[in-house]
Design a protein around this nucleic acid. Sequence first.
DNA 1: TTGTGTTACGAGATACGTAACGATT
DNA 2: AATCGTTACGTATCTCGTAACACAA
Lengths: 107, 107
Amino acid sequence: MRSFVAVADELHFGRAAARLHVSQPALSRQIRRLEDDLDFALFVRDSRHVALTPQGARFLRDARPLLAQAARLTHRDEPGIRIAHIFDLDTGASSPTRSPNAIPRCP
Amino acid sequence: MRSFVAVADELHFGRAAARLHVSQPALSRQIRRLEDDLDFALFVRDSRHVALTPQGARFLRDARPLLAQAARLTHRDEPGIRIAHIFDLDTGASSPTRSPNAIPRCP
DNA sequence: TTGTGTTACGAGATACGTAACGATT
DNA sequence: AATCGTTACGTATCTCGTAACACAA
């Protein structure tokens, strides 16, 4: 899906591939595989232009927030700023038996 | 993440593996890989009990809606009911040049 | 001929299942 | 002894990058 969004942004497989640090054939295959999984076409390849299909545009609208949320999940404490939820502070304090892995990422 | 939710539901690797139609070692590796990617532990394995860590519980709260949304994206027209958005009706009608692939899934 | 997307193909990485292991009850 | 999670190991599958191809401007 990340690859799909990149291609949808660039509307150009070469530039999208460079942006993703992947070869153009690999990207082409990724998109085809996604289309096979979804059972509908995401792009119309005009062999000179790349355009979103209506279904591709719809998928794009839903894919962006999903990727954003997933990124938020995965790199939760990556930046230098720690963000905590009051409930987490609570749960963290209520079971101080043994911190499973205390990785001091922000010294 | 689907595997993680299964284990979190069952709190038992064997049952979760059966539910996912995968072997127990494979599931164990999947969870470990996810923990490695996230850089924090999701479960505490007591060699007799499995429990969520506070961070695992937090991850679970966020993972469920994300998976639900992803499933909605992937099997959009799977059931017998077709759901359309008014904007999609519009976009579909505004470019009737050529339907990229018209797969009549509901005869 | 140049630019762009797609196939072909061999190589490396990934993920699985079976089997063996360690720990706990 | 039984149960439950993990590690070892060989194998099948997947995915990549390079090279070759097809097609249009």
